[in-house]
């Protein structure tokens, strides 16, 4: 199918050959989809996203992207790898990893410079992103001296500036204040409307409905236990609870203790 971007078949992966991180994953992602990946800590979300970004490769099973099978060899082909890097962008979970240049500006423009995008065009995109993310006054600061939330915004900018067809984000809103979270989600939705595919991993169930049309739930044993529309997944309280996605909430009403699971879906930060 021409519209299929990623197709994973029975993918297995382990770190150093002994720490399993993915155990038989089947996923198919179409162009323009919004995908959310949720699951407990250590369930393999980041590993999957790194694999989609062509940084690690299956030990068993196969992954194809844009119709070609991904493996180490194919990335030695400079034409292919440049094309792939232009098409697929990943925001890492740990912004410290992603920011390695002396200043925020250098970091944001690193990607497009490597990919040979024209300088004038880079400047234009930079200005736009700085305004949207409200990080104009950080440009000349060294990224390692920023707060965690500021770092995350810079990391997001450094990927968005590549304007990739497929945007992969590993917990993009962790550590951000509510208003900034709102801005980022609006930005992602906008990008999706203009035709980009977005794939997000998150623990933040508030945002799942907005950033996805398909949700994959990863279980403790590094497999997908359920996938489907956000609506049906978010209603499945037992599933969410079994995967550490909701917490049991107890509070006291006049000497009586009420215990119920708590999803925080109601107080949605709107606007």
């Amino acid at each position: 199918m021409a519209n299929t971007i990623f197709e994973l078949k029975d993918v297995h992966f382990s770190y150093l050959g002994k720490y399993p991180a993915l155990r038989g994953i089947d996923i198919k992602i179409e162009k323009g989809q919004k995908i959310a990946v949720i699951g407990a800590n250590g369930s393999g979300k980041s590993t999957l996203l790194h694999m989609l970004d062509g940084l690690i490769f299956p030990e068993r099973g196969s992954i194809t992207a844009f119709g070609s099978a991904l493996n180490e060899d194919i990335f030695n082909d400079k034409v292919f790898s440049k094309d792939f890097r232009k098409k697929v962008g990943l925001v890492f979970q740990n912004p410290d990893v992603q920011l390695f240049c002396p200043t925020v500006k250098d970091d944001i423009i690193f990607g497009p410079l490597q990919l040979g995008i024209e300088e004038q065009e880079i400047e234009k995109r930079l200005e736009r992103l700085l305004a949207i993310l409200n990080i104009k006054d950080l440009v000349n600061r060294p990224p390692h001296q920023l707060s965690i939330g500021e770092k995350r915004k810079v990391a997001i900018a450094s990927t968005l500036i590549i304007e990739p067809e497929v945007l992969i984000l590993d917990e993009p809103t962790a550590g951000l204040d509510p208003l900034t979270t709102r801005h980022i989600i609006d930005l992602l939705i906008e990008e999706n409307i203009s035709g980009r595919t977005i794939i997000t991993s998150t623990h933040d169930l508030h945002i799942v409905e907005e950033i996805s049309d398909t949700v994959y739930v990863f279980s403790h044993n590094k497999q997908i236990v359920k996938s489907g529309e956000p609506d049906s997944i978010l209603k499945d309280a037992a599933l969410l609870q079994a995967n550490n996605l909701v917490h049991i909430h107890s509070h006291r009403h006049k000497d009586k203790i009420h215990i119920h699971s708590h999803i925080h879906l109601d107080h949605h930060a709107e606007g």
Partner: peptide, 18 residues
């Protein structure tokens, strides 16, 4: 991991600096 992050953004051994 940092090396991966560089690869992810198109680094191929020859950095381009403005």
């Amino acid at each position: 991991e940092v090396y991966n992050a560089m690869l992810s953004r198109g680094y191929d051994g020859e950095p381009v600096i403005l």
